[in-house]
């Protein structure tokens, strides 16, 4: 799923304390059987070492090297990083509004994350009151199952400036508005793309938040209503506190999604028009594989890794506390 958030945060339910200590006691025979343990773990450990850990270290080192052809040839210190942050295509804070690939990721985080969560919550809460809830949720969820590549084709079609092809411009034409080039205007393109991202991810947010809303017992809500609570009070005092934890996990997942965002941009605009819709993962791909600047591309990959490290620490901490208590 191109846009389907990779479920990232370690948040599965943990057994209560009593269960866990029981599990601890029984987990594994007293005398470990080394051979067997190794057989169970070896394939995973080997692949993780060869394809994740070694490459990550290699990429970090390569980001301090000129790295043409992807091999170590000449150490350049922080050159790749100073060039990267001096590059207006990566980040340009001298204009208003700022621009560049990293800034576009910021735009995505601000608009995509907040609107996805907002719409997801609204649909989850409102749909719970109608009989066709499951049908509606399925409809909103469909884009989650399809590839970002297909999503891109669908929306290039809807956005087409040709009023015989593009539905939006056809509707605008019907009320006498001239066709808009949604993906061709540097001022509009990021918002047009973010709208597609939102369309693709609201289903995910709806499913997660709906499960959280459903976890509030109906009798509790009903008795609050009977006691005279207004719908507004029920929403802000009962529903919102109950969904705040899944909502924060959802927000983290969506932020990670934005940092890794690539397929949709690559297929819809190739970062264009000009360089106006590039995002960081796109820059990494382009610098490394289209421009052949492996050292520079490695620096971009390391920036991505650094952006994800706070979330990595958050996950590990969260996991450690939840498995101890």
């Amino acid at each position: 799923m191109g846009l389907a958030p990779t479920p990232v945060a370690p948040t599965t339910r943990y057994p209560a304390r009593a269960d866990l200590t029981a599990a601890r006691r029984a987990r594994g025979p007293e005398s470990p059987r080394w051979g067997t343990t190794l057989l169970f773990l070896a394939p995973a450990v080997l692949l993780l070492l060869v394809f994740l850990i070694y490459p990550a270290l290699y990429t970090i080192l390569l980001s301090f090297n000129r790295g043409r052809n992807g091999i170590f040839e000449q150490w350049v210190g922080l050159d790749n990083y100073t060039r990267l942050f001096a590059d207006p295509d990566f980040l340009d804070l001298s204009t208003f509004p700022p621009s560049g690939a990293l800034w576009n990721n910021v735009l995505w985080i601000v608009f995509y994350v907040s609107i996805v969560i907002f719409l997801g919550l609204v649909i989850a809460v409102v749909a719970a009151r109608v009989r066709y809830e499951s049908v509606l949720k399925a409809i909103v969820f469909i884009p989650m199952s399809i590839a970002a590549t297909a999503l891109a084709v669908i929306w290039k079609f809807v956005y087409s400036p040709d009023a015989n092809i593009g539905l939006i411009n056809a509707l605008l034409g019907a009320v006498g508005v001239a066709p808009v080039s949604w993906l061709g205007d540097p001022g509009l393109v990021n918002f047009a793309l973010i709208a597609v991202g939102i369309w693709g991810s609201v289903g995910f947010a709806t499913i997660i938040l709906s499960a959280a809303v459903k976890s509030i017992p109906a009798e509790v809500v009903e008795s609050a209503r009977v006691e005279g609570a207004t719908e507004r009070q029920i929403f802000f005092r009962m529903i919102l506190p109950m969904v705040s934890l899944p909502m924060s996990v959802l927000a983290v997942t969506l932020v990670v999604n934005v940092i890794k965002l690539f397929d949709l941009i690559y297929v819809m605009t190739r970062g264009g028009p000009g360089k106006s819709s590039q995002v960081i993962a796109f820059t990494m791909f382009q610098q490394a594989f289209e421009a052949g600047q492996y050292g520079y591309g490695s620096a971009v990959a390391v920036v991505m890794l650094v952006l994800l490290i706070p979330i990595l620490i958050f996950n590990v901490r969260r996991f450690r506390t939840s498995s101890v208590t």
């Binding site: 994740l52 990494m284 990959a301 390391v302 890794l305």
Partner: peptide, 12 residues
């Protein structure tokens, strides 16, 4: 490792 982006593996 859940958080390590796939991009770090490409070049190596």
């Amino acid at each position: 490792l859940l958080m390590v982006p796939v991009q770090v593996a490409f070049i190596p």
